[in-house]
Design a protein around this nucleic acid. Structure first.
Lengths: 130, 130, 130, 130
DNA sequence: GTGGTCTAGACCACC
DNA sequence: GTGGTCTAGACCACG
């Protein structure tokens, strides 16, 4: 499975799924024509409610990333790569912007912010994710 | 008024108030003995419901940052600075960590992340708040 | 001064004053004809708001414990002793009843409750009130 | 339902709920993993406003007694027993202490206090709730 | 269905 | 004037 969920990271589960599938497409892990896991398989694998998967897939459909193949499942569309490619950095930037804005408002200087980020990044890339 | 609310930054209003007051105390904008704006005044000023302010103030009270003076208002406690000082970087780090983790999962390298952050920080500190 | 206030004992300040004056009368510390401290003197002494004293005195007036002497102040009435005598144990019993009821509901046995009371009483009468 | 509210016992409704749930956990009526009644159900059952239940549950959450399961309800945590066990006698003692202190100040002797308590306890455990 | 947040407005106790 | 509590009812996110 090319995605997972972390219940405690602030984002709703369905949104985490949406974003991760977009990232997978943007990174060519999923390419045009690939099938995504079935709703029940994904739900079982991630130990979440099938409805949550349904909702995520529905959003991806209406964004034109996935399309249903009758009686078979959901497939990555041809335009998916183009669309996700663009979304990828936007999605991250949007969240990042909010946090940095609060950091500034909290009275941190540009240097302090960058030091804090460098610190976090170092930890993140040293240890896998423990 | 030393705090404001932005409805669209992902955090609930009451939480924005809590965090901004903690920042204000940590930065010595509010010091021990200061009164915070009355519930009604803050609600009017921020154009939100008084109950939302009440909730924020109540959380600050149970965190030992504010204390009520009967019939008079809410006052910054003596221990507030010590407590907020500690919270300040933790609050930012926690949000930051979540975002960076997603960035990594999205396939960005440490360098790409830092470049993106540098970019955002530059914008943030160049233009006041455009 | 024959009474004091403890802001943190759960009872409103005006009520603490009312009750303590009743106790003082019941215990013959104040007797018929005695003057109670003036509003402003009591307020200064107890470091509370004069209005709070006014309210307490007003309640005692309408209970027939105090009566105003024109231009002079408030005096303990003739019937005060009889009335306070009766109130004294009632006031305590009422509060006590509520607490004991909760203790029972919390699953404490009669013996456990009495042990806890004995414990508290021992502490209370050993140390002055530290 | 393992808890109820009495509007006239001096404690706010939300606090009565908080205390009774703590007692229920301390007495093993609720154990780790149990779900508490849903907000709506409790509100209906107790004939109070859902928001009042919400407030009680929120306090229990921030005390680490309850934890939310998204979309499902609120569950008693693993540490709940340990925490409530400790709280149980403290909660009673605190209220008891205030009352006994006033009793002493009212001029009652240790013996008189204990006699009064014995009296109340006898009534309380003889008649169920008359 | 669940809890979480917010608004609107009331009443009370206190200063 | 202040904060504290409660009600009523709405909307959202999630399962």
């Amino acid at each position: 499975m090319f995605f997972s969920v972390e219940p405690a990271n602030g984002l709703p589960i369905y949104d985490q799924i949406v974003r991760q599938i977009k990232f997978a497409v943007a990174n060519r892990v999923l390419t045009s024509g690939d099938m995504v896991p079935s709703v029940r398989e994904a739900a079982r694998e991630l130990a979440i409610n099938p409805n949550t998967v349904v909702r995520a897939y529905r959003e991806l459909q209406s964004a034109g990333i996935l399309a249903t193949i009758r009686g078979t499942g959901l497939q990555v569309t041809d335009e998916a790569y183009k669309r996700c490619r663009k979304d990828k950095s936007d999605l991250i930037r949007a969240r990042l912007g909010n946090v940095l804005e609060e950091a500034k408002r909290a009275g941190l200087s540009a240097n302090e912010i960058q030091a804090m980020v460098a610190d976090e990044v170092r930890q993140l890339f040293r240890e896998p994710h423990a």
